[in-house]
């Protein structure tokens, strides 16, 4: 299975970090080994896990202080899920961090070492199509594009697909679109449903899984936990991420079959 999934969107607040974290958890709970790397200088993954800014050492120490990668990778309590957080980052070091991420070859080396035993890596990126997102796309096999179901967001889909097409031509021919994930869907609002209908019927690559706008995400954030880790009955939203995980694994497997030349497997006999 191809390994790196870049979660990116030109638009902010569409649920990139929420998707990254909960998809990583869902994949791990399905038995996959996953590394979740936080490339966002804002450190969204750490915030989602209720860690104070810089409470977790991570990429910043590796990139700016030459700390060993092994010290930056955290094995979580969920078997199979490791984190590579942003790390401790003073505001004055932000530019140096972005430069180290986007304009050197360090990130590639760090990821290669961090993901040694992880067949799947999820890269959470900052909003926009800036240098970090471009770098992440140039190192990824797949793009998962969270898409807020509102009309302005339709333009952002075109923008990022153009960028992906450019990166495929210039830097990374193996980059493919894993899917467009409708997020913040509000089934009670006709506007949201209109957009959903439009992309489902008109745009190839829109996933079956959708992520609704729901207060449970804020609750999870307050508790500093992924949805699946909240106490009480399992949230339907956590179930949605399991569906998303199953769907993306299926697409990656199909993509690998097509790319590996195994699609024309000869007939065999067992006995």
């Amino acid at each position: 299975m191809s390994r790196r999934i870049c979660i990116a969107s030109p638009k902010g607040g569409v649920g990139k970090t929420t998707t990254s974290l909960n998809l990583a958890v869902a994949l791990a709970e399905l038995g996959h080994s996953v590394l979740l790397a936080d490339l966002d200088p804002q450190g969204g993954v750490g915030h989602s896990l209720a860690k104070k800014d810089g409470a977790l050492a991570g990429l910043a120490e590796v990139l700016l202080q030459n700390a060993p990668v092994s010290q930056a990778v955290i094995q979580t309590k969920l078997p199979g899920l490791s984190l590579l957080p942003r790390g401790v980052l003073e505001p004055v070091d932000m530019l140096a961090f972005e430069d180290a991420l986007a304009r050197t070859t360090k990130l590639e080396a760090v990821l290669a070492e961090a993901e040694r035993n992880q067949p799947i890596t999820i890269l959470d990126t900052p909003s926009g199509l800036g240098s970090i997102t471009r770098k992440a796309l140039s190192l990824s096999d797949w793009l998962l594009l969270p898409f807020q179901t509102e009309s302005l967001a339709l333009r952002s889909v075109t923008q990022i697909l153009k960028l992906v097409e450019h990166i495929r031509r210039t830097d990374n021919p193996k980059l493919r679109l894993l899917g467009i994930l409708p997020s913040m869907v509000e089934k009670q609002k006709s506007h949201s449903l209109d957009i959903l209908e439009t992309v489902w019927t008109g745009l190839p690559g829109v996933l079956d899984a959708t992520i609704p706008r729901h207060e449970v995400f804020a609750e999870a954030s307050r508790h500093g936990a992924p949805l699946a880790f909240l106490s009480g009955p399992p949230s339907p939203e956590a179930v949605r991420f399991k569906m998303l995980a199953t769907e993306v694994v299926g697409i990656m497997e199909r993509g690998n079959e097509k790319g590996s030349g195994h699609e024309n497997q000869p007939s065999r006999t067992l006995l």
Binding site: L154, T158, E165, L177, G205
Partner: peptide
Amino acid sequence: MRISLRALFSELEEAIPLSQALMEEVLPQR
């Protein structure tokens, strides 16, 4: 207020072939 689906589709005119091309290996079965 119901928004115009035609207007929405026009936003996607460029995105449709791009998405199709970027998923050509996995799309037919989806």
